[in-house]
């Protein structure tokens, strides 16, 4: 009686799906909320605190998406550039990323905003830069592991040109790990922006953000205004984290049910800062 071939590991994607659904729901609620406020402009604490918090969410969520994607792109480009330059430049670039990750980058955002007088472009750039080194480190690890794999050697033995190697073999296999590395930037962007806004050195009050609302409410001792904003912020952070974890898990699984990096798939490594 020979043992049956090992079945592909089935993983549950429940948490990731729940995170994504929650994010969509929050985004919808935040979009609809201003309409429920009689169509008036940004409203403050004298009105329904839940609606106010939902209205503030537009700023937080859209900014997290914008700066998170920018940070992810920057990080991936950083690692890609390091690998393209190779050797000494690669060591220097990735060494710089590792040193930056060890610094309290999150605090550079409120500092930069304070010193430059703020503005959305500055804030976006700062938040993206605070997330980029982490993404770069992860993406570099993944890309290096991918480049060591034998199927690329096999493709070279099959006479494939450099362009074909990159386009048909490297890129399709790099998509998942790079997306997973990039997904880390989203919860980080939301957290960093919220911290800066909470300290009063983040998104301008005209845009509105959960962090800013929580900060103002905490200073005023206004529990009624603080709770909905804090709750929505916590839920969004959870949802972003769940999505990022799911992306890591999918990357570890590899395409078409195969483990990536030749390791047994399944558990996602913890890379959360």
């Amino acid at each position: 009686m020979s043992a049956p071939p090992p079945l592909p590991t089935t993983t549950h994607h429940g948490k990731g799906a729940a995170g994504l659904a929650l994010l969509v729901a929050l985004a919808l609620a935040c979009t609809v909320a201003p309409l429920l406020n009689d169509g008036a402009g940004p409203l403050r604490a004298d009105r329904d605190p839940v609606l106010t918090a939902l209205t503030d969410g537009r700023g937080s969520l859209s900014f997290a998406l914008l700066s998170g994607l920018l940070g992810a792109g920057l990080g991936v480009a950083w690692s890609g550039l390091a690998i393209a330059l190779g050797d000494r430049a690669e060591r220097r670039l990735m060494g710089a990323a590792a040193r930056l990750v060890a610094l309290p980058l999150a605090l550079l955002v409120p500092l930069g905003v304070g010193l430059t007088g703020g503005g959305l472009p500055v804030l976006t750039a700062l938040v993206a830069l605070s997330a980029a080194p982490l993404v770069a480190g992860l993406a570099h690890q993944d890309l290096r592991a991918l480049l060591r794999r034998d199927f690329l050697t096999a493709a070279r033995a099959a006479g494939r040109s450099k362009g074909a190697l990159l386009l048909h073999h490297l890129l399709p296999n790099a998509v998942r790990p790079l997306l997973a590395a990039g997904a880390i930037a989203l919860p980080r962007a939301l957290a960093v922006e919220s911290l800066a806004s909470l300290l009063g050195l983040g998104l301008p009050s005209s845009v509105g953000s959960w962090g800013g609302a929580v900060g103002v409410a905490a200073r005023l001792g206004d529990g009624l205004a603080l709770v909905p904003a804090a709750l929505l912020l916590a839920l969004s952070l959870w949802a972003f984290h769940a999505v990022a974890d799911e992306a890591l898990r999918l990357a570890a699984e590899g395409p078409h049910g195969g483990p990536s990096n030749g390791l047994p798939g399944g558990s996602a490594p913890d890379a959360r800062p």
Binding site: R149, D150, F151, T153, A154, A155, A157, H168, H169, P172, N173, G254, P255, H256, G258, S260, G262
Partner: peptide, 15 residues
């Protein structure tokens, strides 16, 4: 042409 020590690893998982 070559044969590799880990045949499964020498196949592109995305093709």
């Amino acid at each position: 042409q070559p044969l590799f020590p880990d045949p499964a690893g020498s196949l592109d998982p995305a093709m």
